[in-house]
Amino acid sequence: MSERIDLSVNIGGLKLKNPVMLASGTVGYGNEISNFTDLSKIGAIVTKSVSLNPRKGNPPQRIVETPSGMLNAIGLANVGLESFINDKIPFLKEVNSTLVCNIAASSIEEYVECTKTLDGEDTIKGFEINVSCPNVKEGGLIFGNDISSVGRITEKVRAVTNKPIIIKLSPNTSNISEFAKVVKDEGGDAVSAINTLVGASFNIWNKKPKINNVTGGLSGPAIKPVAIAKVLEISRKVDIPIIGIGGIMDWKDAVEFMIAGASAFQIGTVNFINPNAGIEIIEGLESYCSQMKIKSISELTASYNLE
């Protein structure tokens, strides 16, 4: 019998049984997707962005399909901190998967308050700070495109929790590694890259934008090469664990991200089409490692050959 492959990873102190994470905003709070897949086998679940107060989100139309991708402008619709704690965490506790809580905010104080309040929840093993949502007027990209804001948010959030902090970076910038560097300098434990790319699409017959918010975040296979380039850039310039995100549809895509420098990865859009994709990816990774004689999946991280 072949030796068991070690799929576990450690991302800046966040220990996962495997590198497969379900991306924020693509699994809700776990309950719906649990009808289709065994969440207890998944490395981690990143919950839908939570903000201090509930947000109703943007009016329809919120999504449109584009070539090999989709644009979304959900607008961070979420139940708010109080309902998240009272109504959503109890189910997530039962799931027996590692839980990372994604936080969105319109001010540094709001990031701090949410993190501080959630820090006492044992179920939450780490925080992903969303400084890069392209679909809200306040916060979001205004922070994500400003290095000093990203630095200050990291610093202030660091001050109120000892749990791992992951900063989710925007690709809508030409120097993503400088953002990763400031995260590292201010005490962040990891970065996740990338959030969606800003995109737009028009109906040519009535000349109106196809989504109500005019622009939205592009996700899906269309953004995979961009995401891999951003992961590679960070990996070559900054010594910080990277969680790769962007158009991963199967285990081969996931392997590519890890080779480019990711320690773990998140799957997002694919959950909408194949809500069991995470489990299939775990199986694919095991078989790949076995074929490649890789004993521990972490050996794959930044194993690129640029000769």
Partner: peptide
Amino acid sequence: ECAMACGFGICQGCPIE
């Protein structure tokens, strides 16, 4: 009817007032 991605509540893409 509304444009939707997942069909079961996780994408939040199909709101109706």
